[in-house]
Design a protein around this nucleic acid. Structure first.
Lengths: 134, 134
DNA sequence: GTTTGACCTTGCCATAATGGTAAGGTTTAG
DNA sequence: CTAAACCTTACCATTATGGCAAGGTCAAAC
């Protein structure tokens, strides 16, 4: 049972880097790990699960700040799913607006690139448009 | 003719902040401005045009590093439009892949949010899925 | 038993672009 | 002359991640 892993193995198990695990601990996202006599951090399977939770949330783009809230909600049996959904929805809104912003850049830039010959001559509509007062 | 503006007015004209104009100068994007006896930076209309160029490029998401190249190309009468288009295309590729990444998050997160009641009960599929080993 | 390689520790620096604040000099209008 | 609105530099903060360096530890090979 309680198999204890050092940080390198915890990193492999969770898909995070050892560096980041230390960082998460230091920023209060994770409780301080128990240590060996030599000072090595040790992780049990429950903590490995927490690390996986963090990795999954990060892969969805949640900030560490949001993840802290998610972890607290996760560990609170009294939570209301409303709170979780609200966090998710806010993050979703941010994602959606970032996508819109990028798509706008994509559209403008595509038009510009299409209007540039891209050959050996100096004439370039991209530069011309960037230089316009607008 | 050579109307000279102080940094605050140059900021208003260009749509950049005074703070950022100083920063661009310090990072080598802009040549050092002439100064008044009191040390105030002064900008002529050509420099205002450069500031506008930078603002437009920033609004398309180009990095300062890329903008430095764009400025050099802009000022080089010998440039080949190929070089400009290549820069634009690379940036476009990055934008496109960021959009894809965000859309993936959006899709997964939407599915998760849809599967959470978001009411007063503690059951929440978002948390459950984040906690899954995956 | 010693050496060696693969770990671990902490601490500091760097990134990208921007904002804030503080302490102090200047200019302009009243 | 004074007060408001400028300007200057310098330092700190943000976000998440990586790198490096100097040094301790552990296990296996010799």
């Amino acid at each position: 049972m309680a198999t204890l892993l050092t940080i390198g193995d915890a990193a492999k198990e969770s898909g995070l880097s050892a560096k980041m695990i230390r960082h998460y601990e230091q920023s209060g996202l994770l409780r301080k790990s128990p240590r060996t006599d030599a000072g090595y951090r040790l992780y049990n399977s429950e903590q490995i699960n927490q690390l996986r939770f963090i990795r999954q949330a990060r892969s969805l783009g949640f900030s560490l700040h949001d993840i802290q809230s998610l972890l607290e909600l996760w560990q609170d049996p009294q939570r209301e799913s409303r709170a979780v959904k609200q966090l998710a929805q806010q993050h979703l809104d941010e994602i959606t607006s970032k996508i819109a912003e990028l798509q706008h850049m994509q559209q403008v830039l595509t038009a510009l690139a299409d209007s540039c010959r891209g050959d050996g001559s100096p004439h370039c509509n991209i530069l011309q448009q960037l230089a316009k007062p607008s």
